[in-house]
Structures are given as structure tokens and as C-alpha cells.
Design a protein around this nucleic acid. Structure first.
Lengths: 210, 210
DNA sequence: AAAATTTATTTCATATAGTGAATCGTCATG
DNA sequence: CATGACGATTCACTATATGAAATAAATTTT
């Protein structure tokens, strides 16, 4: 079992996205794009190969387009999927936000190898994602693939000792108080080597959402 | 200089299609993710609310899932759509940088109120700046003005107790293990309130360089 | 190895998406 | 007001995705 997916999921949640997919007004968004380009349904039909009627229904949320239909859309309109999905960013530069997390009050995300506790998860739109992790893994073999995610990661050992395996380096032993900063798209994995499970604090940069 | 590319481009333009209408092995990708997590179809069914049979057919490219189905997938598996679409990056232009700081080996920056120890300062071009701080200040009066810098800051108390003064909030007492995330252009200042000087770990975002 | 159990695929009925033609609404023109 | 032109929606129908159950394949247990 790999921590990869859960880890990423944790990051995704921490970065402020809802775990459950919101309505996602795809129809509305499509219409926006179409009108922004002064295209008629017929135009879009030409470009995408989808019927006018189909497009109309998609825009009015009367049907949920098939994935192939979505592909035709993004292909025909020459847009990216994120562009189709993400509504224009509000980008509220609110000042003075604050998010307190008392000890032990983080949001738990257990996996077989790691036990994550997400900190400061009240706040969306963060540029850093902090979490505390109890390292359950005891052997590198417990990971069936590298943990890997875009961006950078800072990690400091709070308790115990760990062995940090990375894709391009020899395993590195880290004791309590040691810290490391690395590009997290380099595969990495932690195992505890102290008597008790080690605890580390990590801070990641969120996934790019361009 | 390649005639081929131009030729291909010409064909592309002529056919009105996008550069690469890649097959987009969504099924294959799903299966990868599922197996990577050691999930059974039933497990995924539970998580997503989609029928086993449907999942099987999606994995085997026998159907093109409805967009709502895709949403259930990304919701239930707690992955991002890009993750579902993009096959594991073939060549990640991963740099694989790494910067280790052993306990106490950071770069010291003493001030009257704080004693900073910069961590991971070998590495330039970071998106996060981690440092450990011993809080010498004992009274808010010791600061002549707010500490204030662009970006965001994450802070966790490693030892002792502190009082966090912020521009827009009441002072907040933080004990060992408590953490907080805030916009650091909001004025802030820390004082120790425990017997010994408290120690905190902070991570800041660097100044924007647009 | 056979039986039992778990996991994946296939079948089939049904629900829903996709299509072309008809309809409706709006706007312009005679 | 009628008429036509255009764009969007609705209708009737076909194609296909979905889910429950049956079947097959793989794995574990006895």
C-alpha cells in the first residue's frame, strides 16, 4: 500500500479544495467561454463535432457530458481542461487571515505507512501546507512506489529517528531536530528507525493550479 | 529545422484538430491508481458510489464515463483530475535538490527579541523559508514596531509557551505543539511566557519577485 | 487438489446521453 | 403585421453508459 495517493489527497484537501466535488458548473463555464469568443452553438458544433442540441443541453446542465464529449470540447475549443473546469479565480487578497490549530486538533489522515495530521486546514488558498506525520512504516518495502508530488517540501524531525529514502540519494538518517528541504517531485519515503514511531513536521508547497 | 513538424502542423491545421489528441488512457490510469493503493473494484465502488461493473468497463476502455462519473471518481479517490488524466510524468524535469541541516547547524541571526536559526540556507530559490527561533522577548513593549513581511507564515511551538500578538486579533497563547498559519503582512510579534525561553519553528513564503 | 471465497468481467434491463429535425424566440426588414 | 434569418431549445429517436445479477477468473482455505 502506498502513501502516495492518500498523501496527495491530503495535500489536496489541505490546500483548500473540497474533498467532495462541488457542483462544478461546467455548463455555465462552457457558455461563458463560448460567448466570450462570440461563438454560436453552431460554431462550437463545427469545432467540436458535437450536435447543437447536445451543446445546448450541456450548457443548461440537462445532461452530464460523456468524457469523450468533454475531450471533443477541449480539443475543439482548444482550451485546457482546467480552463473548462475552473471558474475565473476570485483571488481575494484578504489580509490578516489566521488559522490556529491546537496540539492534536489537526485533521487526521491515516494511511498504512503514514499517519498525517493536517494543520491549519481551516484556511483555503494557502501557499504552504503544514502537517505533522507519525511515520508508521518500518521498512522501505512497505511503499510500493515513491511518494512524489509537485513542488518543494521542508521536513524536520520532532521525535524519534527516521531514514529518508530519496530517488537520487543514499538513504539519510535524520535524528530529532534535524531538518531537510528538498524538491518533492523527487521520489521520497520515510521509515521510522527509533524504538517508537517517529514524528516529523512537514511543510509542502501546494500543487500548481495555473 | 524539420519539414516534418511543419508538415504535421499543416495536417493538423487542415484537419482542424488539436496538436495531439492523445488516446488519454483514462482507464489504464484509473487501474494504476487503484492497484497502487491495493484497492479492489469493490473498494473503489464503495468510495465512489459507482458500480463495480461500471468501474471495470471504465478501466477496460469499454465505456466513456459520464462527467458525473468522473467527478465521483476524483471525489471518491480523493485525487485531482490532472492526476487522473496525466500519466505518471515520463521525464520529470526534476532537479532533485536537497539541503540537510543537522540540529543546531543552522545559520544564526541573533536580535534583541528573537534568536533565529535559519534552516536549509544552502539552497537558493526556495518557495519556503524555514527557521527555528528562540523567543527572547518577555514583554510586548520590547518591540518598537510590528514585525511584518509579505506573504504567509506557518508557526509551531516546539518548546515552552508563547503569546502571539497580532495586529487584528487579541493576543493568543500558544503552548508546545500548537500551530498557527497567518498572513504575515499582518503585524505580529511573539513573547515567551514559559519559564525558559520558548522555541518555535516558522516557515515563511519568500517575497514575491514578479 | 477441491472447495470456498474473493475479485473481475460479462450480461442484460434500464436510465441517460447524443443526434437530427422540428419548434420557439428574437430581431431585422419590407 | 408578415416574413425571413438566425440562434437556442425542445422533441422523438438512437446510441451508449449505468447498475444488479450472473458468470468467470483468480486467490485463499481446507
Amino acid at each position: 500500500m502506498s502513501g502516495l495517493t492518500d498523501h496527495d489527497a491530503a495535500l489536496r484537501i489541505a490546500s483548500g479544495r473540497k474533498p467532495f466535488v462541488e457542483p462544478l458548473r461546467l455548463g455555465e463555464r462552457l457558455k461563458e467561454i463560448r460567448l466570450a469568443n462570440r461563438w454560436t452553438l453552431e460554431d462550437v458544433s463545427q469545432r467540436t463535432g458535437l450536435a447543437r442540441s447536445t451543446l445546448s443541453k450541456i450548457e443548461n446542465d440537462q445532461i452530464s457530458p460523456t468524457f469523450t464529449a468533454v475531450q471533443k470540447l477541449i480539443g475543439g475549443l482548444e482550451i485546457d481542461l482546467p480552463q473548462l473546469l475552473s471558474p475565473p479565480k476570485p483571488q481575494t487578497h484578504t489580509l490578516g487571515r489566521r488559522d490556529l490549530t491546537r496540539k492534536g486538533d489537526g485533521q487526521l489522515h491515516p494511511t498504512p505507512t503514514y499517519e498525517h495530521e493536517l494543520l491549519s486546514c481551516q484556511l483555503a488558498q494557502k501557499r504552504m501546507i503544514p502537517f505533522k506525520t507519525i511515520v508508521r512504516a518500518r521498512d522501505f518495502g512497505e511503499f510500493n512506489e515513491w511518494v512524489r508530488h509537485d513542488g518543494e517540501e521542508f521536513l524536520i524531525v520532532l521525535d524519534g529517528s527516521v531514514l529518508l529514502y530519496t530517488e537520487f540519494y543514499e538513504p539519510l538518517r535524520l535524528e530529532q531536530g534535524d531538518s531537510i528541504y528538498f524538491d518533492s517531485d523527487m521520489g521520497h519515503a520515510l521509515v521510522s528507525v527509533s524504538d517508537e514511531d517517529a514524528t516529523v513536521l512537514s511543510v509542502c508547497t501546494p500543487n500548481e493550479t495555473p
